Amino acid sequence: MTYTEEARSDAPYQPPWGLKQKDTFMEFTPCRDWYLNSFLPGEVNRQRTQTHDGLYHAYIVGEANTHAANHQIVREWRTMVREWGDWEKYREHLVKQLLSKERAEWKEVCKKDNQCMYAARSKITDLEAQISILSKKIEDAEANKEHVEIDLEAEKVKAAIAKEAKQRVEEARDISTSTLNIAQQNYAEA
Results as ranks from 00 to 15, higher is better:
174 D>V: 07
104 A>H: 06
158 K>G: 10
125 T>L: 08
103 R>T: 10
22 K>S: 11
117 M>G: 00
180 L>G: 09
80 M>S: 08
53 D>W: 10
106 W>G: 06
147 H>M: 11
48 R>C: 03
76 E>C: 03
181 N>A: 15
10 D>R: 10
1 M>Y: 10
73 I>Y: 08
53 D>C: 03
86 D>K: 06
63 E>Y: 09
112 K>M: 06
94 L>Q: 13
56 Y>P: 01
133 I>M: 04
100 S>Y: 08
9 S>N: 07
125 T>Y: 05
124 I>S: 08
135 S>H: 05
15 P>A: 06
168 R>G: 02
168 R>A: 04
75 R>M: 06
79 T>S: 09
147 H>K: 12
95 V>G: 00
87 W>Q: 05
25 F>K: 02
115 Q>A: 12
17 W>I: 02
95 V>H: 02
143 A>P: 00
49 T>Y: 02
37 N>I: 04
110 C>L: 12
181 N>C: 09
18 G>M: 05
72 Q>E: 11
88 E>V: 07
120 A>C: 06
155 E>Q: 11
50 Q>R: 08
55 L>V: 06
99 L>S: 05
33 D>T: 10
157 V>Q: 14
39 F>P: 01
122 S>T: 14
135 S>C: 09
82 R>C: 09
131 I>W: 03
59 Y>R: 03
77 W>C: 07
146 E>N: 11
136 K>V: 03
25 F>I: 03
99 L>W: 09
119 A>F: 08
114 N>H: 09
66 T>K: 10
69 A>P: 00
150 I>H: 15
171 E>D: 14
114 N>I: 04
156 K>P: 04
130 Q>F: 05
146 E>R: 12
177 T>A: 10
159 A>I: 14
103 R>N: 08
119 A>P: 00
24 T>N: 02
168 R>P: 02
120 A>I: 06
190 A>G: 04
189 E>Q: 11
43 E>K: 11
142 E>S: 12
172 A>P: 01
22 K>V: 05
154 A>T: 14
111 K>T: 12
20 K>C: 05
91 R>A: 05
38 S>C: 15
31 C>H: 01
120 A>K: 01
49 T>C: 08
95 V>W: 03
17 W>E: 02
100 S>T: 13
3 Y>F: 14
129 A>Q: 09
88 E>F: 05
188 A>N: 10
81 V>H: 04
3 Y>H: 06
5 E>M: 03
90 Y>K: 10
56 Y>N: 12
127 L>G: 03
102 E>Y: 15
70 N>G: 04
140 D>L: 12
115 Q>R: 08
145 K>F: 15
173 R>P: 00
15 P>N: 01
171 E>Q: 11
32 R>A: 14
36 L>D: 13
68 A>M: 04
80 M>A: 11
128 E>F: 07
97 Q>V: 07
45 N>W: 05
2 T>P: 01
94 L>V: 07
94 L>F: 09
85 G>I: 02
89 K>T: 06
17 W>P: 00
161 I>V: 15
170 E>N: 08
136 K>L: 13
6 E>P: 00
84 W>I: 00
119 A>L: 13
65 N>H: 06
115 Q>M: 12
2 T>W: 10
